[in-house]
Amino acid sequence: MQTIYNTLNKIIEGMLVLIFSLLVLDVVWQVVSRYVVGQSSSFTEEFARFSLIWLTVLGAAYINGQKEGHLSMDFLLAKLPPKKQFKRHRVIQVIMAIFALVVMVIGGGNLVYITLKLGQLSPALLVPLGYVYAIVPLCGLIIIFFSIYHIKITFNPNSNEH
C-alpha cells in the first residue's frame, strides 16, 4: 500500500506542476496577445478556467493525502489521550471517505455522465464538458484511497509513522 501511495503522490505532483505551468503560460499568452498584438485569443480564458478547476480539485485530493497538509483546528483533539486521538482521526477519515464517495464519485460521476450524454461542448475549445468534470469523480476515488491509507497506516497507534 505504501508503494501505491508514494507512486500516486508522485503522479499527482507531476500533474499539478504541469497544469500550473500550462495555466501560467496560458495567462501570459493572454496578456501578451491582448496588449502586444492588440487582440486576445479566444481560447485562453476558457482554458484558464478549466485548468484552474483541475488544479483546485486535484490539489485538494493531493493535500488530503498529506498528513500535515490540511488546515485544521485540532486544539481540542490534541487534548485527548493518544488512543482517543486515533479513534477520532479514524472517524474523520471515514467521514471524508463517505463525503468523497457520495458527493464526488457518485454526484460527480452523474454530472460527467449527463454532460457526455447530452453532448455539451465548451464554447471556445469545443471540448466535451464531461472530460472537464471527470476530474471530480477521479479525485473522489483518490481521496477515498488516501482515507483508507490513513486509517490503515498513518493513524495506527502501533505504527511508527504518526
Rank of each mutant, 00 (worst) to 15 (best):
S42I: 13
L101T: 04
N110M: 14
G140N: 02
I142L: 04
K87M: 11
M96H: 13
G14T: 07
I151G: 01
G69I: 10
Y131W: 10
V103D: 03
L16C: 15
Y62E: 00
H150S: 06
G140I: 00
A134M: 05
F47A: 07
I63M: 07
H70W: 14
K67N: 13
L111N: 05
I63Q: 02
I106M: 09
I63F: 02
N110P: 14
G140T: 00
L16N: 09
A134K: 02
F86R: 11
G65M: 05
I19S: 05
I92N: 08
L16I: 14
K152S: 06
R90K: 13
V102F: 07
E161Y: 15
F86N: 14
F75L: 14
Y133H: 07
L77W: 15
D26V: 04
G119W: 03
Y131K: 02
C139W: 00
H162I: 06
V32E: 06
I151A: 04
M1I: 06
V27R: 07
V136P: 01
E46G: 01
T115K: 07
L129F: 08
V136R: 01
I142A: 01
L111P: 06
L138D: 02
F20V: 11
I63W: 02
P81V: 15
V31T: 08
P157Q: 02
N6H: 15
S21N: 05
G108M: 03
Y113H: 09
L55H: 07
L126G: 08
W29T: 05
G65N: 04
F50I: 08
I63N: 00
I11A: 15
P123Y: 02
V102L: 10
L58E: 01
Q30N: 14
V32Y: 06
V28K: 04
V94G: 09
L126C: 12
V91S: 15
R90P: 11
Y5G: 03
V17N: 09
P128H: 03
L126Q: 10
N110K: 08
V27L: 11
Q2L: 12
G130L: 01
S147R: 01
Q2D: 15
F145P: 00
M96T: 11
I19G: 03
N156R: 03
I12A: 06
Y35I: 07
S42V: 09
L76H: 11
T3R: 11
S72L: 10
L129P: 04
T3N: 12
Q85S: 12
S21P: 03
